[in-house]
Design a protein around this nucleic acid. Structure first.
Length: 514
RNA sequence: GCGCCGGUAGCUCAGCCAGGAUAGAGCGGCUGCCUUCUAAGCAGCGGGUCGCAGGUUCGAAUCCUGCCCGGCGCACCA
């Protein structure tokens, strides 16, 4: 405060601080005021403040920190949207974790949030995928075939072909090649989508709506949007292709909508999709993209402007994850089949550690994810530190019940007795949740919650070490039980937003390793 | 070459948007602490030219400029 005012005043900041401090009333909320450093006014919070702050947490219950008041509007988060050409691999894990946690955070901060997954189930990649499946299907009936150049080599393609062969036997053989591939593709895509959905469920990623490129194409939306852009003179024809005037919207150059062979580009479909989303009445459209797509952000936003999209278009970019195993880099490619599936990752480290690890880093920061290291460090992963605090609290509360302690209503519990430094510090930390949540939503940075969770856990562990909860002092026991309840609440809310489980108990391990 | 993102402790990373107190956490190393609510914990020690160089400021990890490394992107691919 004094430091903020100093530039506007002739007095030194330290002197300002003293003037201000002298006017602050001391009571049981603010006990003591000190000046430090260049002009910091330190307020020492008293028992009145502690009771008040803790009361706010307890009164709000599991809604503590959440936005109150009327909803801020409808918002959509598009996440993952990986092609249905194979199982989700670990490269998409960061997208899923960030997208889902971000959606949770935005929801808690007052938006009505819809999470959407978009399947690119048309186009060149699908053709290649169909041919690849065919190349694994035909040999089962003695017909030689090879996976095409650039096709999908993964073992799962063979598995898919096997499943299809098991169900349909050689029924697809007599069909003409185009029809056969169409049928094989339908079968393969359906199965792949099923697997993707199952994997996301395992990873605790909730998707509300599933959209497909095919629907978009069949509705004629792509043709429509190109026509609209041309009519508004935001697009023009050149060299047999149709270009969007992206350069008029800050992009480096104009972008092709329709190729000279008549095929729409991915971007044209993006434009159609944009209108499709906008028509659904969202005030904000959030995209979660890997940094390898950052070059397409400007054209998307340009298109939104050109098309008069009323919703705000926002792109959350995350740096790609460098996966390795025991120090050996793992290249990710669905086509070569050289990849680790998200399912394998979940088998090895579990959804909690995987999500938490991916959400500890800022999305701007590249992540090094050595699967062996994360597996080996499982027990030291900060996620367990936080979960342990939660389990510890649950254990105390169970113990209290077992001892027959009857918890009085919190507003009669004498919370002002919480005066130990670790108690005050814990309450102070808990009270930060609303601010942390708000800033995480504003910055679309869910990783801030992991750091907050660790702070709460640390504050609790310190309190636990210094203060005994269940004691002969009945009223102090009451107050401390409420402090435990509030801590558990805040940890549970925070972990819930991150999509990480908050266990009621954790087995003691490691006693013998010492 | 141009654009975006990183470069903070031995390792992995917060802090940077809205500049302020001896720059933090986890892991790893060392030392203590379990007759009492879970020691997956706590306390302490050691460990840092905040990539480099300038600039703005009473004050810079934080803002500005330049440079050096690393990642990604610069298609009528997705």
């Amino acid at each position: 405060m004094a430091l903020a005012l100093a530039p506007h005043s002739e007095r030194p900041s330290r002197e300002l601080a003293e003037l201000l401090a002298a006017r602050i009333e001391r009571d049981d909320v603010i006990e003591r005021v000190e000046i430090a450093g260049p002009g910091f006014i330190n307020l020492f919070l008293g028992p009145g403040w502690v009771a008040e702050a803790l009361g706010e947490v307890l009164a709000a219950g599991d809604r503590f920190g959440r936005h109150t008041g009327p909803p801020l509007g409808r918002l959509q988060v598009e996440l993952v949207s990986a092609n249905p050409t194979g199982p989700l691999h670990v490269g998409t894990a960061r997208n899923a974790a960030i997208g889902d946690a971000l959606a949770n955070v935005l929801e808690a901060s007052g938006y009505e949030v819809e999470r959407e997954y978009y399947f690119n189930d048309a186009g060149r990649q699908m053709e290649l995928f169909a041919e690849s499946v065919e190349a694994r299907y035909l040999p089962r009936f003695g017909i030689e075939a090879e996976i095409p150049e650039g096709g999908y080599q993964g073992e799962y393609v063979n598995d898919l072909a096997g499943e299809i062969a098991a169900e349909h036997s050689d029924a697809l053989l007599p069909l003409n090649p185009a029809e056969r591939r169409r049928r094989l593709l339908l079968e393969a895509v359906e199965r792949t989508i099923g697997r993707i959905r199952a994997t996301l469920e395992r990873f605790r990623v909730r998707i509300d709506t599933w959209r497909t490129e095919r629907e978009l194409l069949e509705s004629g939306a792509v043709d429509d949007v190109v026509r609209r852009l041309r009519e508004a003179d935001h697009a023009y024809e050149a060299d047999g292709a149709v270009f969007f005037r992206a350069s008029a919207f800050g992009d480096e150059k104009d972008r092709v909508l329709i190729r000279s062979n008549g095929e729409p580009t991915y971007f044209a479909k993006d434009c159609a999709y944009l209108l499709d989303k906008d028509a659904r009445g969202f005030s904000r459209l959030v995209y979660v993209w890997g940094a390898d797509h950052h070059g397409t952000v400007k054209r998307l936003k340009g298109a939104a402007k050109a098309l008069g999209v009323s919703a705000g278009v926002e792109v959350v970019l995350y740096q790609l994850v460098a996966f390795s195993r025991g120090g050996q880099p793992v290249r990710m490619s669905k086509r070569t089949g050289e990849m680790i599936s998200l399912d394998e990752l979940l088998d090895e480290v579990g959804p909690d550690a995987a999500r938490y690890t991916l959400l500890t880093r800022s999305s701007d920061s590249p992540v090094e994810f050595d699967i062996e290291v994360v597996t080996r460090q499982t027990l030291d992963n900060p996620v367990f530190y936080v979960q342990y605090a939660h389990a510890r609290i649950a254990s105390i509360l169970r113990r209290a019940v077992a001892q027959g302690v009857i918890l009085e209503p919190w507003n009669q519990a004498g919370l002002g007795r919480l005066r130990a430094p670790t108690e005050v510090e814990l309450v102070r930390t808990l009270a930060e949740l609303p601010d942390v949540l708000e800033s995480a939503a504003a910055a679309m940075a869910p990783h801030r919650l992991t750091h907050f969770a660790e702070q709460v856990a640390a504050a609790f562990h310190r309190f636990y070490t210094e203060c005994r909860v269940l004691s002969d002092d009945a009223s102090l026991t009451q107050a401390r039980l409420w402090l435990c309840t509030a801590s558990k609440l805040v940890l549970g809310i925070t972990l819930g937003l991150l999509g990480v489980s908050a266990p009621e108990s954790m087995e003691r391990i490691g006693d013998d390793d010492v």
